[in-house]
Design a protein around this nucleic acid. Structure first.
Lengths: 356, 356
DNA sequence: CTGTTAGCGCTTTCAA
DNA sequence: TTGAAAGCGCTAACAG
């Protein structure tokens, strides 16, 4: 007759096989001669446990070098202590500053940050958003390729989302946006106030909301001149190219408002190479106030946004959303850029001379 | 008499209650009238499924806007498609460049990146390392506060780790390190080759291996002068302070080798403010070649490290480790910095004059 | 104070 | 080709 079929594999109980695999909670429980529940209690400091139990568990944890498996914990608790950030395909100081601010805030609150960048298409972005499900408790979206409507469609499952991509703001959706229009207007006005009368604009990436809004602000602030706009894409190289185009114009502008600092820096370099002096021959103002703005020569005048601070703020608001659940703060916060005057737009005493 | 008590909540089977909660695989299965196993097969393209089944599943997925829960999937498959990065508490262009490279590579391989930065103490770092368990398939450690020994202790559970924190490299541990000593020597030699004879060094953070190694390289490369070392901490501000100290010396150096670019930039600024000309009065060379190095004026000569590329390389090697399992490539890769000459160390024709 | 047990949402044998 | 069921590692009632 056959022996009892070895289907009772689960009964092979007491072997403490600590192979190459990481110890699990059950291993700890076995070694400590307690239940997994007790281990959980000791580890999380919840409920009550006798000193004896605690000691044994701690000993076992120590001995086995047990480290909790956060993935499993997340599945149980439906909390990840992680927030996701969806960035566009742009890169540069703006985003690293932002991430820095976010990281600081996240750490301060004991949260992890999972960053997914370089998203261009809407489809790509949405895929990234989806892939966050089950990994994060909420997310901050900066990618301009996805708007409130899209997200609403995706998130039937109520995942808190904070929008930080200008233009997609919408009532009832938590968001933080930069007052791009106002900032652009202020930039142009500063240029005019310092005596410039032929102001050009190097705009950001085509079809980018922020770029559009800043350009619109520029146009609306012009009073006695026609707009002079050249295309850029927010990269330093594009700023350089755009500036070169500007220099080739029959009637050169005497000032340029670049849609962001990196392009302004590119322009500065182009002017330098061409022997055109800034601010004497042409003034330059940027947008963002990335760290580098203060370091280039001439130091760049710009519309400061306090990037890291916004990142911090974003994370804190998102954490608020996650905790608040329904009673969430779905307001739209508007950040107003402030002018930071540096050398690149210094007023020229009287008339301008060509360089000698 | 009372109605049947409503305790049979669980039997309320066929209602398609798509409340505020996200749809789960079971919801899909129910709607498609198939088992969760079939749903899984269809979604993952594994196994075989009849067209009819596939259609129904797809329809249900669509209708329910079902998005897979990656956390749950991870728990099942013990794969996370995510790699963790542990950074020190430093921040600046070096790390953002690095992250950029890593992110690019990760995305190219369909992996996520979870970044944990600002770790100072060893304990803090280890905690971060631990908190990655069950979230990532492997990790890249840049924090100098944890070495191979520490990690070996932690990771009984065989989690692939790639070390990128110089000084802690060790045979049998996969790692990528920068040849800090060699780079420092090359920097000093370049300074000497361009006629400098009194070379100072602004070192990086105390007790930091990279800082120590670069300082050691500096010392060993000096031939006919005593070392002149001032403390810094890798930040721009510290470079500025250090440079100020240098200027106050009775016998001013005619060149300074800063342990990284940000400090070099700080020094450049300090010199500028003090009316000391670079490179005429004093030459400056940095280390890293962060993007900003090419943008400051005078443009900064530096030891290029190709940061983003290293980040990319790190991620690719780690992915290799994760896939290879035991047959892993545990070699230590050494990256040799290369000199990038710019204006800040331009040779001075003959004698040096004080500015007029 | 402690153990049992039922999930969290998904994958994956193993039978049918 | 499909479904049932056993986990992955942990938490959280609910009984003892």
């Amino acid at each position: 007759m056959d022996m009892a079929a070895p289907t009772t594999a689960s009964s092979a109980g007491q072997e403490g096989l600590l192979s190459a695999k990481a110890a699990t909670m059950r291993d700890v429980a076995e070694r400590a001669q307690v239940s997994v529940a007790s281990v959980s209690r000791v580890l999380n400091g919840l409920g009550v446990t006798s000193d004896a139990t605690r000691q044994r568990v701690l000993e076992a944890v120590e001995h086995l070098r047990y480290v909790p498996h956060f993935g499993a914990r997340s599945l149980s608790t439906s909390k990840n202590d992680t927030i996701g950030v969806i960035l566009p395909d742009l890169f540069g100081e703006f985003f690293s500053e932002l991430i820095r601010g976010m990281d600081l805030a996240a750490r301060a609150h004991g949260k992890h940050l999972i960053v997914s960048s370089s998203h261009d298409g809407a489809e790509d972005t949405l895929a990234a958003v989806r892939s966050m499900r089950g990994r994060v408790d909420g997310m901050i979206v900066l990618s301009p390729h996805v708007d409130a409507a899209n997200l609403a469609n995706e998130f039937v499952g109520r995942m808190p989302v904070l929008l930080m991509n200008a233009g997609t703001a919408e009532a009832g959706r938590a968001s933080i946006v930069i007052d791009n229009h106002g900032g652009a207007v202020a930039a142009v006005q500063h240029l005019r106030a310092t005596g410039r009368r032929r102001i050009a604009h190097i705009r950001g990436a085509a079809a980018n909301v922020e770029a559009d809004t800043r350009a619109a602000g520029y146009v609306s602030a012009l009073t006695d001149q026609a707009p002079i706009i050249v295309e850029g894409d927010f990269s330093q190289a594009s700023g350089h190219r755009a500036a070169t185009q500007l220099l080739a114009m029959s009637q050169r502008p005497d000032a340029v408002f670049a849609a962001n600092d990196m392009m302004a820096v590119g322009a500065l370099l182009a002017f330098q190479e061409a022997g055109v002096r800034c601010p004497e021959d042409i003034a330059v103002i940027g947008f963002d106030d990335v760290p580098i703005a203060a370091l280039v020569r001439p130091a760049l005048t710009t519309m400061r946004v306090n990037i890291a601070e916004i990142g911090r703020r974003g994370v804190e608001r998102l954490i608020g959303l996650v905790q608040a659940g329904e009673a969430a703060d779905t307001s739209c916060e508007i950040v107003r850029p402030v002018l930071v005057e540096r050398q690149s737009t210094a007023a020229v005493p009287t008339a301008r001379f060509n360089k000698g």
